[in-house]
């Protein structure tokens, strides 16, 4: 499969990927390397993984990172309560200490968290490590072993080798600087906001029934809006919501009803100061330019 094929297949499932992104994905799959996607919020980084899983009809294992995430929640944890019960039960049956120990430190008592789950699947899943920059630097160190060797070491059991190599996609949006060691192990692509043509293609793929004239106006409007001084620039998900809001309000032309347009802006502008800065006049001016 060439990267062009991958791009067309992804487009069929409703994800319009740029050339750079398609090549990077193609390489990530064929070289078995993790892919690090960086970009502003709402440009479709997470969606890449979901589409890829759908395309290859495999499972998507998702690990959402947050500050304070540690190995117990990301990789594995012993099922302590169950172990405790087993010890109690064994004491009553008169089992020997060594036998109990062997039993309670077996795979049966191991709770699989996303990273361990991903490497023990029979068919290679897509592993999405979302917003990796939110996790602490210490967590990156855990990731390194998994991303380079696809193996996890549990001191009580030994090293668990991957049954199949998952396709790993990491996303980050610059909350903190990632370590060079992690960046080195990954292929890298910066995902930009899409240009007008791409965004129109996305809108058409996701909202097939939309009036073409309105669709073009919406894209024109959003593209112009991104040039304004905003705290939170609207992403693609916001564009889709905006389109849904407009068609829900029964508009077929942006300049038709200024009040309705202003109401629909709640789908695009997500902070109080952004909403205050885009007044009805400004919205109309932008709509006028977009038409």
């Amino acid at each position: 499969m060439t990267w062009r094929d991958l791009q067309t297949q992804m487009a069929k499932t409703g994800y319009v990927a740029s050339d750079d992104l398609s090549v990077a994905l193609h390489l990530a799959i064929s070289l078995g390397r993790p892919l690090l996607l960086e970009g502003a919020a709402g440009v479709g980084k997470t969606e890449v993984a979901r589409t890829l899983a759908e395309l290859r009809s495999t499972e998507l294992v998702r690990l959402q990172c947050y500050e304070g995430l540690d190995a117990a929640q990301a990789i594995y944890e012993w099922n302590y309560q169950r172990q405790l019960l087993a010890i109690r039960a064994a004491a009553e049956d008169g089992e020997t200490g060594a036998a109990v120990e062997n039993r309670i430190f077996s795979r049966e008592y191991l709770l699989e968290r996303p990273l361990l789950a991903a490497i023990t699947k029979d068919t290679p899943p897509v592993l999405l490590i979302d917003e990796v920059d939110r996790a602490d630097e210490e967590f990156e160190a855990y990731l390194l072993e998994i991303l380079s060797d696809f193996q996890i070491t549990v001191p009580e059991i030994g090293t668990i080798e991957a049954k199949s190599r998952p396709i790993v996609i990491l996303t980050c949006n610059g909350t903190r600087d990632l370590s060079d060691a992690l960046r080195r192990r990954c292929l890298y692509t910066y995902v930009e906001y899409p240009d007008a043509a791409t965004e129109l293609a996305i809108l058409n793929a996701r909202k097939p029934g939309l009036n073409q004239r309105l669709a073009q106006q919406i894209i024109g409007f959003v593209q112009k809006l991104r040039e304004e001084e905003l705290e939170k620039v609207p992403g693609i998900a916001e564009t889709l919501d905006f389109a849904a809001a407009l068609s829900g309000l029964g508009l077929s032309d942006l300049s038709e009803d200024p009040a309705a347009l202003q109401h629909a802006l709640v789908a695009l502008l997500k902070t109080q100061s952004d909403q205050a800065s885009i007044t009805t006049e400004i919205a109309q001016r932008i709509a006028g330019k977009a038409a």
Partner: peptide
């Protein structure tokens, strides 16, 4: 195509 491939491999940040 080569440019895109090398970009994915060599580049590490924005």
């Amino acid at each position: 195509d080569c440019r895109r491939a090398l970009r994915a491999v060599c580049v590490g940040c924005r």
